[in-house]
Amino acid sequence: MTQLDRKESHATVGVPAGRLRPKRVRRNLDLTLWEKLYLFEIIRGIYVTTKHFAFNMIGFVVPPRGKKRSVFTVYYPEEKVTLPPAYRGRPVLVMRADGTEKCVACGLCEKICPGHAISIVGGERENSERYPLSYVLDMTRCVYCGFCEEVCPKEAVVMSSEYQGLAETDRSNLRYSKEQLLRSEESVKGRIEYIRRIYSKCNY
């Protein structure tokens, strides 16, 4: 028996029992007499909430013009937040200036999609350029992972910032065709710049 084996047999597994003992809780030591009287701390607490109340009451009825509101709530349908480029909304297809899609129907997005949301039928134009005859995106299956965008060699699929119209009463309405998904390059410019940066897609 070597020394190494003996050492192994004596080794303890896991956290030593001494360290598992809970630390002693030091009650009352943290409270001063002033805090133990409680009444003054109540008054301090009420002072804080009253301060918030008083400041928020300024412009409660009519909001002051040009001033930043101290309330952070967004009135959703009337107001909308500006989304950062990192936001992953509905995947869309990027369109060239002449109205044709950038997609070359290579099928990489179809293959990597974890939810099998994308189904592509490829075709070929007269100038032997490949293009998708149909590109169906089933939004009932999409999990907004963004793999399609990451894998795409042509920057043809990007995650847009669209989040509206994703709730429907009929599932068939959520199967988007190619025509419904085409967006101009201008509208998704920020996202394209962003994915070039994070996925190092600078070799275009």
Binding site: T49, H52, F53, N56, M57, S70, V71, T73, Y75
Partner: peptide, 10 residues
């Protein structure tokens, strides 16, 4: 409404 105003809500 008062709780909302106190807690910076609407």
């Amino acid at each position: 409404k008062q709780s909302a105003v106190m807690q910076d809500r609407i």
